[in-house]
C-alpha cells in the first residue's frame, strides 16, 4: 500500500469538526469514492472527530490518500492524549456512552468504514484508524 498524499488537522473546537468533514470530503473526492461512500466516510469522520474533541479533550486527525492493488482509498487516523477508554469492547457497543452522545460514535464509524481499528489505554489516550476503499 502506498500513500499518495497526507494532510493533518488539529481538533480543538467544534468548528474543527466541521473542518474535518470538509477535509474528508476533499480527500474522498481525490480517492474517487462514489457519493454514498463519500457520505459514509464523512459521517464516520464527523463521529470520530467529535469523540476526539468531547472525550479525548482534543487531538488531531491524519488524512491519507492511499493506493493498494489498483484501488484507491482514504485512511483517517484520529489521535488524542485524553483519558483513554478502559473497556474498548463495551465502548464499541451501540448505546454505550460516557458522555452526552447517543453512543453510536464508535460502532457507527466502524459500520461506515471498510477497515477499522482502535487502540486505547487508560491514561494514554486513544487512536482510531478507519479506511474506506473505492
Amino acid at each position: 500500500m502506498t500513500t499518495l498524499k497526507t494532510e493533518r488537522l488539529d481538533i480543538r473546537s467544534s468548528d474543527d469538526v466541521v473542518r474535518v468533514r470538509q477535509l474528508t470530503r476533499t480527500m474522498a473526492l481525490a480517492a474517487g469514492l462514489g457519493l454514498v461512500d463519500q457520505t459514509k466516510i464523512i459521517t464516520a469522520a464527523s463521529e470520530l472527530a467529535r469523540n476526539t474533541l468531547d472525550y479525548g479533550g482534543g487531538g488531531f486527525v491524519l488524512a491519507e490518500l492511499v493506493e493498494a492493488s489498483a484501488r484507491r482509498g482514504l485512511r483517517l487516523t484520529f489521535e488524542d492524549k485524553g483519558p483513554g477508554i478502559p473497556d474498548v469492547e463495551a465502548a464499541m457497543k451501540d448505546g454505550f456512552t460516557s458522555g452526552k452522545g447517543m453512543g453510536l460514535g464508535l460502532g457507527g464509524a466502524k459500520r461506515l468504514s471498510n477497515e477499522f481499528s482502535i487502540h486505547s489505554q487508560p491514561g494514554e489516550g486513544t487512536k482510531v484508524v478507519i479506511a474506506r476503499w473505492k
Partner: peptide
C-alpha cells in the same frame, strides 16, 4: 446517500 448512511450508522 444521507438516508443510506444514517441507517448504516444505526439511526
Amino acid at each position: 446517500a444521507v438516508a443510506i448512511t444514517l441507517v448504516e450508522l444505526g439511526l
